[in-house]
Design a binder for these strands. Sequence first.
DNA 1: CTCTAAACAGAAATAATTTCCATTTGGCAA
DNA 2: TTGCCAAATGGAAATTATTTCTGTTTAGAG
Lengths: 152, 152
Amino acid sequence: MEEHLEKLRASGRKVTPRRKAIIQLFLQEQSDLSPQDVQEALSGATGQFGLPGIYRNLEVLTTCGILFRVVTYGGERRYALCKAGHGEGHHHHIVCIACRKVGKVSDCLYKDGMMVEGFRLVSHVVQLNGLCESCAREKNDLSALQELRQQG
Amino acid sequence: MEEHLEKLRASGRKVTPRRKAIIQLFLQEQSDLSPQDVQEALSGATGQFGLPGIYRNLEVLTTCGILFRVVTYGGERRYALCKAGHGEGHHHHIVCIACRKVGKVSDCLYKDGMMVEGFRLVSHVVQLNGLCESCAREKNDLSALQELRQQG
DNA sequence: CTCTAAACAGAAATAATTTCCATTTGGCAA
DNA sequence: TTGCCAAATGGAAATTATTTCTGTTTAGAG
């Protein structure tokens, strides 16, 4: 937790109860969450959480590198805790399709500047989906995979 | 155009004036388009195009491989003409950040099944952004790049 | 030419996201 | 510690995006 708050301070933002509650939630839930998920999870506990505030805070937490926005082909808005430490540079994430655990991918196969099909690469969006070690051991049936393969 | 209509027929869908008009639009505009862009472009020409119909058709055209949905970190809904021919398998696209030209990336560096950071890769989302040959020649000033680098 | 499943039109419902503004608060400076 | 002020909050309301529904039309097989 403290390491996350440090990122907030480093970017000149305030540490507020709301932000701590949201970070706490992401720490508990190991999955990625939509703004609606966050509202549902936090409502009741600490009074009401309005969606506007949640949007604002998810945005702030993403800006200062505490969360990242998961990329899907469907474009749904979902966030997860960024696994990179403060100051670490370019990286991507890989999400386990079974347990939603998030891993950090430091050495991306694509490097900005490289040539691809006649284009010079300037930026790239990469989101990997896979099975983490423990889930891979459990799931030797591939049926669930097929289902999830298309989700991006 | 005909090659696109063939994809429609191949998937058992009907070739309708609406669908032809949408494909035609994407053929003219070389950029990627949102449903709203499509509505604006097509309204007036052939009477009214309601957004519900546009959503439906963009979805259909995507399903049968004529369009693809561009992936961005922001999650906006934008479509572009798929560069892959009928029956071609797994591929990604690279978009020129200057002229929006789309290129096909057939041999992705990531392969499902490979191991990445302890995960077994099941699916992956890749969207590349770069400069096509002609734009790269023009733009030796990097200022525009910086601006676009974050867009995903 | 007929018939039928698929497509269309568009109103309306729903859901997602942003804007606004009055009130409160974290954290720095005195 | 206390006070200040920019930043954060709360929540209503506006806006925009997306889906659902229903009755009508049409592409294209036979």
